[in-house]
């Protein structure tokens, strides 16, 4: 069998402050195939965002290694684009300029000026944000900001797309709409995606596999659940689908029976 596309090997993360140290992640290992959509789910404080930051290269793991196509990840880079929870668009740039900044930086050597413009527009089309290209982030809704964030991440053609609770701050209807768009884009472009979420339905709907984390401190991967639902998936049909219901209840049981968050009660 060939080597996995992205692999996390025995990641340990220990935060030390003063004399005290807390182990956040404990021996996390995961292999991801090319084109796979993986969700990482767990209660808050289980270190799932830390794990994503380690894959992004924004945080350095205490022990263990992340390999992308066999190469060690030790710094952030455009091959691992991150969509941040709070969109992180630059408020002084327009929607178009925000995407263009990324495109200009990553493709400065390989695409001409006209091609970079085309490519920026192509990605704004992908998230249906062309109409607001000249607006500033403060002038568009939260869902639109997140779409621009996704466009910016997709525009740099990353090997892995990292989504850090991308829809967490959105209302339910906008969230559903964006989930559908992300599914559509995933079908079209076959990106490899790693998504942090705390939403069970979102995880089951979007993922090929769901990685369930135990509670911190010292969180580890509790279970990995395959979601053998055929694509394209439609949320309305899935409501009564037995596989969907089985997966959903498996995740719910993991989160609320075996690894209930005590403090949250």
């Amino acid at each position: 069998m060939s080597k996995p596309y992205l692999s996390l090997e025995q990641i340990d993360m220990v935060f030390s402050r003063g004399g005290a140290s807390t182990q956040v992640l404990n021996q996390v290992s995961l292999d991801v195939d090319k084109g796979e959509f993986i969700s990482i789910i767990g209660h808050s404080g289980c270190g799932k965002s830390t794990l994503l930051n380690i894959v992004a290269g924004l945080t350095e793991a205490t022990r263990g290694v992340v390999l992308l196509e066999g190469a060690v990840v030790d710094a952030p880079g455009p091959d691992r684009a991150v969509v941040f929870q709070n969109h992180s668009l630059l408020p002084w740039l327009t929607v178009y300029e925000n995407v263009k900044l990324a495109v200009d930086k990553v493709f400065s050597g390989t695409k001409s000026r006209a091609e970079r413009h085309e490519w920026t527009m192509r990605n704004l089309e992908l998230v249906q944000m062309v109409h607001a290209r000249d607006k500033r982030p403060s002038e568009v809704s939260g869902g639109m900001k997140q779409r621009v964030g996704i466009a910016r991440a997709l525009a740099i053609e990353p090997k892995v797309l990292l989504l850090d609770e991308p829809f967490g701050a959105l209302d339910a209807l906008t969230r559903a709409h964006l989930q559908d768009q992300v599914m559509q884009i995933h079908t079209e472009l076959a990106n490899t995606v790693l998504m942090i979420t705390h939403d069970v339905d979102e995880a089951v709907l979007l993922s090929d596999r769901i990685v369930m984390m135990t509670n911190g401190p010292s969180a580890k991967i509790g279970e990995v659940l395959d979601v053998p639902l055929v694509r394209p998936r439609r949320r309305i049909e899935l409501v009564s689908d037995t596989t969907y219901i089985r997966c959903r209840s498996a995740v719910l049981k993991f989160l609320y029976e075996r690894h209930r968050l005590v403090e949250a009660a």
């Binding site: 952030p76 684009a81 630059l90």
Partner: peptide
Amino acid sequence: DYRNVARVLRLNQFEYFTKIMIP
């Protein structure tokens, strides 16, 4: 967040200064 954006895009010092820091 802005720093992270710059790091992911690998902006160099000059680009970071003009495009992120000053604005």
